[in-house]
């Protein structure tokens, strides 16, 4: 059983819901990403998605594109992100998902990736442009090494596809809240509830919802229908704000406070 499965198991027993922040590894530096992971855990994160930057992030909006550019300019590579995983594991047991596009993963070699990710302490792998049609070698390599394989499911996915994606995903399913690229939105999609209920009817695997989740009321709304809320661009934007601000210097404190607010705006 992976750390991801254990965490969702505990949450289920406690009737709790998961809060999953996304970080682009190496934005603004790998040392800061390590500190951010540890601080976000203290702020109540149940799992962290660690993004491996890719030169052509077609599924990402401007915020994560800029984070990707910063990380790539910092010389971040998959090898260095794996090392980051090792460094997290020296201090924490928080579940980690390696999150990227398929090419950098494929380039590493799938069996080697499975071995190295496991050794580095990652629990699952997700490639945002890997469809289930093309996933067989990937799933075989990852699952053999004991890693979860997480796939995206979209509001445009047919019921037949939803079923297949649910069968291929382990650990959790990543439900995209709306069509489009990553990025914050004022409102959640009107048809989200119906989409999640349809998806729920096909699977008992935990469902995490991402894309556009940027306010506490979004997190609460997602928790009513699903098992986890994923926050990416909103957190990355907080990082961007601090590194671009000459006055605010406490990056870790600011991002943790933001994560706490998203989870519980009343500050209990």
């Amino acid at each position: 059983m992976t750390r991801i499965e254990k965490r969702f198991g505990q949450l289920k027993a406690d009737h709790g819901k998961a809060f999953i922040p996304y970080l682009t590894a190496g934005d603004p530096s790998l040392e800061m990403t390590l500190e951010l992971v540890l601080a976000l855990e203290k702020a109540g994160a149940d799992l962290i998605e660690v993004g491996v930057p890719f030169s052509d992030p077609i599924a990402d909006g401007p915020v994560i594109q800029r984070a990707t550019d910063r990380a790539l300019r910092n010389g971040v590579t998959l090898q260095k992100v794996l090392k980051l995983g090792e460094n997290v594991r020296k201090k924490s047991e928080i579940p980690l998902v390696l999150f990227s596009y398929f090419n950098p993963l494929l380039n590493h070699g799938l069996d080697r990736l499975a071995k190295d990710s496991t050794a580095a302490g990652f629990d699952g792998v997700l490639a945002s442009d890997l469809t289930i049609e093309e996933s067989e070698p990937f799933v075989r390599s990852m699952q053999r090494a004991g890693l979860n394989t997480i796939f995206l499911v979209a509001p445009t996915s047919s019921e037949e596809r939803m079923k297949k994606i649910a069968e291929t995903s382990t650990g959790f399913l990543y439900a995209i809240s709306r069509t489009g690229v990553t990025g914050e939105r004022q409102e959640l999609a009107a048809d989200l509830k119906e989409f999640l209920r349809t998806l729920r009817s096909f699977t008992t695997t935990p469902i995490a919802v991402g894309f556009g989740i940027s306010r506490p009321e979004h997190v609460q709304a997602v928790w009513r229908e699903a098992d986890a809320a994923i926050v990416g661009s909103a957190i990355v934007r907080e990082i961007e704000k601090v590194i671009g601000d000459p006055v605010v210097v406490d990056l870790v404190g600011t991002v943790s406070a933001f994560a706490r607010w998203l989870k519980d705006p009343s500050g209990k």
């Binding site: 077609i58 398929f102 442009d129 469809t131 049609e133 979209a154 445009t156 047919s158």
Partner: peptide, 14 residues
Amino acid sequence: GGQFVPETLMHPLE
């Protein structure tokens, strides 16, 4: 070849 795209695009490709 193949189809390596975000899941949202699979329905329109079909």
